[in-house]
Design a protein around this nucleic acid. Structure first.
Length: 578
RNA sequence: GCGCCCGUAGCUCAGUUGGAUAGAGCAACGGACUUCUAAUCCGUAGGUCACAGGUUCGAAUCCUGUCGGGCGUACCA
């Protein structure tokens, strides 16, 4: 059964509202698929289970039309009919559709579809008028989604590693809201564990040292210079503070300062959260409740050594090892509150829960998923929970690797990174050009040196060029008749641009479905390339030829909205002039 | 040792979920400003898709093995 991918996508497209048939890329795709399926049903009595994989997608080569389907080859064996014949039946199913300009059957059994110019122009008109956001309205509304990301413990400034996650999580959030989800961003932090004790003690040690004492930074504590700053400030306000009597005060002060840092770091990238969720909110109530539920499900057992430790039977859930969830002293290991936190998220009625984690959390996150699945059921968890795990960033400066460790205090902070790269736009973009699962090398020297010939500027420049044209044209050529544009925009560059513009909403929707923002950076670059190519070859403003000018203005306006929409999804600015 | 991720042009990476001749950007080389912005465009060159098998009409993509890199493998988070 090879249904899943196609089914999922078809469902997405199927949510398109009716009544916009003539200029909706979503309806167009579902009509094309349905046309081909109908023909197959009629001609071959083709079983439904095979029909759902019959689709058409953007074709790679311009020579093979705008869209192509390779489904005939797959059906050949099932139907015991040569693929060429199946393809021509599928092609017949498309005749008469208004947005289809031509259909051919090529090669062993490809159906190649050319979209009509009239249709492409009407989509461009709609894009110019409603913007990309307007086109994407058809996807929603989709319900409530929550994206959890960063979730770094408040022990110091954010580093380069967090930067990738921050940018990724924010872009995924933007993508989801672009296609109709109501998104909230949540930051979860562990303030109840031992790390925070170590941080408090590290701060106390620095205070003591400033007063001439000799209290050492604890084993496994935090050495970073920023803690010295905190210590200085703390002593100004509370000169008499002492360790361990004022343990809680040190803790509060450290947490507060750490969050100030983190929030201001995130602000640099224009990222903010709807909620910061503290682990301590779950202790003890919800965590004990979660343990009880696991207990009732027969998934816990006390350590046979009688020490009072509580184990979770993860091996019964298909995981490699059982884990301790409550220590002998009564404290919890980090997995347990994490499970309780996820149960809490589920209980808040979200339709989609996205976790963005670094690859160092893979093990924990699979354990949490297993536990939650055991309590809530496979169906529900599969339906609502999605995990994006990204690989690490290795940072280098001119080819030399920079080693990083938060505790030792050797790292490049997000703040340093953004200021060294010189622009939040460039930082965002560079982090988003790679897919999450791929390792990533980030060479600071290159990022800075190239900032003149950066892909970001390339895209922004396309937008600014359109701005230039619009400033000169004013409102003179704004009212374009789509039918006339369809007749006039026939140069290869114009056609290529129209075709790409038509595909934008679908690409965004698919990127959202797969939570893959890197496809948006790709598409934005592609659109900029298509526009620069058009711009260089054809003059838009021609006072002697108002109809052609109007038609090309339409192209510019649609392209402008396309670029603006894509940059918005990426969280990157779209400057009117450069 | 075991688990997860990755290996594609000199470098950094895409590759429409198994389709047609594997693509961009940098870097290299050669061209284009009397034009709505040259932060641009056009052209050339660059590949045993880590390696070896397998699955089938068809594999960079799926399965197995090998090699190489990253991350895990805590009663840290």
């Amino acid at each position: 059964m090879k249904t899943c991918g196609a089914m999922r996508r078809t469902k997405t497209i199927g949510t398109a509202r009716r009544g916009r048939e003539m200029n909706s890329p979503f309806s167009t795709r579902s009509s094309i698929a349905e046309g081909m399926r109908q023909a197959l049903r009629r001609e071959f009595a083709c079983p439904e289970e095979h029909l759902c994989s019959v689709t058409a997608s953007e074709s790679g080569e311009p020579g093979f039309g705008d869209m192509a389907s390779s489904s005939a080859m797959g059906l050949a064996k099932v139907l015991r009919v040569p693929p060429g014949r199946i393809a021509s039946v599928m092609a017949d199913g498309l005749s008469g559709l208004p947005f289809v300009g031509g259909v051919t059957v090529d090669g062993p059994g490809f159906v190649n579809i050319t979209l009509s110019n009239g249709y492409l122009s009407s989509v461009a008109t709609r894009l110019a008028r409603e913007g990309l956001a307007g086109m994407l309205c058809e996807c929603g509304p989709r319900g409530k989604a929550m994206v959890e990301f960063v979730s770094s413990n408040p022990t110091g400034p954010l580093t380069v590693g967090h930067c990738r996650q921050a940018v990724l999580g924010d872009a995924i959030s933007r993508l989801l809201s672009a296609v109709g989800w109501t998104v909230s961003r949540e930051y979860y932090f562990n303030d109840a564990g031992r790390q925070m004790d170590r941080l408090a003690e590290s701060l106390a040690a620095r205070c003591d040292q400033l007063r001439g004492g000799s209290m050492p930074v604890p084993e496994g504590g935090y050495q970073g210079d920023y803690i010295l700053d905190w210590a200085r400030d703390l002593l100004v306000n509370e000169p008499g503070i002492s360790w361990p009597d004022d343990r809680e005060r040190f803790r509060e002060a450290a947490t507060g300062r750490a969050f100030d840092l983190i929030k201001s770091d995130l602000e640099l990238l224009d990222i903010c959260f709807d909620r910061y969720f503290a682990e301590s909110e779950l202790i003890p109530g919800p965590v004990e409740e979660a343990i009880e539920r696991l207990d009732r499900a027969g998934l816990t057992y006390p350590d046979p050594d009688g020490s009072g430790k509580l184990w979770l039977k993860l091996t019964e859930l298909g995981r490699p090892e059982d884990r301790v969830v409550r220590r002998a002293g009564g404290g919890y290991t980090y997995r347990m509150p994490d499970i309780a936190y996820h149960l809490d998220k589920f209980s808040r009625g979200y339709d989609l829960l996205v976790d963005v984690f670094g690859s160092d959390h893979i093990d924990t996150c699979r354990d949490v998923e297993a536990a939650v699945t055991a309590l809530l059921g496979v169906e529900r968890v599969k339906r609502t929970m999605r995990t994006v795990i990204h690989q690490f960033v290795t940072l280098s400066r001119g080819g030399e690797t920079v080693k990083m460790s938060t505790r030792s205090g050797e790292f490049v902070t997000l703040r340093d990174l953004v200021s060294e790269v010189g622009s939040p736009d460039v930082t965002r973009f560079l982090f988003l050009t790679r897919r999450a699962e791929a390792h990533m090398d980030f060479d600071l020297a290159v990022a800075r040196k190239d900032s003149d010939e950066n892909p970001v500027f390339y895209i922004q420049y396309a937008f600014a060029r359109i701005g230039g044209i619009l400033r000169i044209a004013g409102d003179r050529f704004r009212d374009t008749d789509p039918a006339q544009a369809a007749d006039l925009l026939r140069e290869p560059r114009e056609r290529a641009l129209l075709r790409l513009l038509e595909a934008l909403p679908v690409r965004v929707s698919e990127a959202a479905e797969d939570m893959a923002p890197h496809r948006i950076t790709d598409t934005a670059s592609e659109l900029a390339t298509a526009f620069h190519g058009f711009y260089t070859q054809h003059k838009v403003m021609d006072e002697g030829n108002p109809p052609l000018t109007r038609a090309r203005m339409l192209l510019c306006l649609a392209c402008r909205e396309g670029l603006k929409g894509l940059l918005e999804v990426l969280g990157i600015s779209a400057p009117e002039r450069m």
